[in-house]
């Protein structure tokens, strides 16, 4: 109990314990209103949390970083976001644990795409192999976009220093910059790059899953929950898995030719996802990422990401992936380093 403020809150909470209804356990979920957070919403609207005896309150954020901070500070219990250097540095402080998967770049499921400006495309930037000598707009150093271009550089065997990285802070800035040709390329989720391409604002030259499939994000909770409220975490995970399975069956199907198909199940889930994300159906279909039905993590990918961030001086050397992960809540995590 290092934080006296938290101690006070806990003390007050314990003092008020007899006044609280005993049946439902309250949890707070920190969430972004992205399609990749869909299982969180489905579990709520379909009553899976309630069936587990959990009373859920959502706390919505506009950026990934605060979600992780909210969990680490104890202001929220569960969250899902993409992995970034900032996330790993925060997790490395020991206050939060990754217990499952969010989405991942899975072959066959277009998610993050390389979008090239019209000018650069006309000048011959027609495939990811042509990245050397070009510029890439991204939010920040240490973001998942930075990681993706870094992994691509390793995969295709060119030094990352040959790509001019341009931090632009926000996705709208990235879009504006590629539209106007200020940067040659950006990497963004499918619903955005497809819409940009459809409007003639750039060309998609490839998908991240085609070059560097990886574990995009995770499901995490506070270390305190893991140690002190284990049964609550287990209940939450069960509800999350039910919803993830449902999402997976609706949105992650491929037909015999490997094309994505959406059916009645997807249609049935649309209203729930729309309610939270306010996205149009076409945008949801375009941007629905691959989510493991059981929340299983590509553990090796997490290790590789941390190693890459460390190599580039973005994650503290002290951060140990084994310390960040708690693989005990979900069975079937794969690609686990020995």
């Amino acid at each position: 109990m290092r934080n006296p403020f938290r101690a006070t809150v806990v003390a007050l909470f314990l003092a008020a314990w007899p006044l609280l209804p005993v049946q439902a356990q309250k949890i707070t979920i920190a969430a972004l209103t992205f399609v990749s957070s869909s299982p969180l919403f489905i579990a709520q609207d379909k009553g899976y949390y309630a069936e587990e005896g959990l009373e859920v309150e959502f706390s919505f954020f506009r950026a990934a970083q605060p979600v992780a901070v909210a969990i680490a500070s104890g202001d929220a219990d569960f969250g899902v976001t993409a992995f970034t250097a900032g996330f790993y540095n925060l997790a490395g402080q020991g206050a939060l644990k990754v217990i499952g998967a969010q989405s991942r770049e899975e072959p066959g499921f277009d998610f993050s795409g390389y979008l090239v400006s019209n000018q650069a495309y006309a000048a011959g930037f027609t495939s990811p192999e042509k990245f050397p000598g070009r510029s890439l707009g991204m939010t920040q150093y240490g973001s998942s976009f930075h990681l993706m271009i870094g992994m691509l550089a390793d995969e295709l065997g060119f030094p990352l220093s040959e790509v001019k990285l341009v931090p632009l802070q926000s996705v709208p800035n990235m879009i504006a910059a590629v539209k106007s040709g200020q940067v040659d390329s950006i990497i963004l989720p499918a619903h955005i790059v497809k819409a940009l391409e459809a409007k003639g604002n750039g060309r998609i030259v490839g998908w991240v899953h085609q070059y560097t499939p990886y574990q995009l994000g995770g499901l995490f909770t506070s270390t305190r929950n893991v140690t002190e409220r284990r049964e609550v975490v287990e209940k939450f995970v069960r509800a999350y898995q039910r919803a993830a399975t449902e999402y997976h069956e609706a949105f992650n199907r491929l037909d015999a030719d490997g094309r994505r198909v959406f059916g009645e199940k997807a249609e049935a889930l649309l209203p729930i996802i729309q309610k939270y994300t306010k996205a149009k159906p076409q945008s949801i279909y375009n941007g629905a990422p691959y989510i493991d039905p059981l929340g299983r993590l590509d553990v090796g990918s997490v290790y590789a990401q941390i190693a890459w961030f460390k190599e580039n001086g973005l994650v503290d050397e002290k951060v140990d992936p084994a310390e960040i992960l708690d693989l005990s809540f979900i069975e079937g995590h794969f690609n686990i380093p020995e």
Binding site: Q65, P167, Q169
Partner: peptide, 21 residues
């Protein structure tokens, strides 16, 4: 220095914030 700056004290502060350093 939010936009397109690799170096700069402002860029350093922003980046450190993003990296949770």
């Amino acid at each position: 220095e939010m936009i397109g700056a690799q170096y700069g004290i402002g860029a350093l502060v922003l980046q450190a914030g993003n990296l949770m350093r």
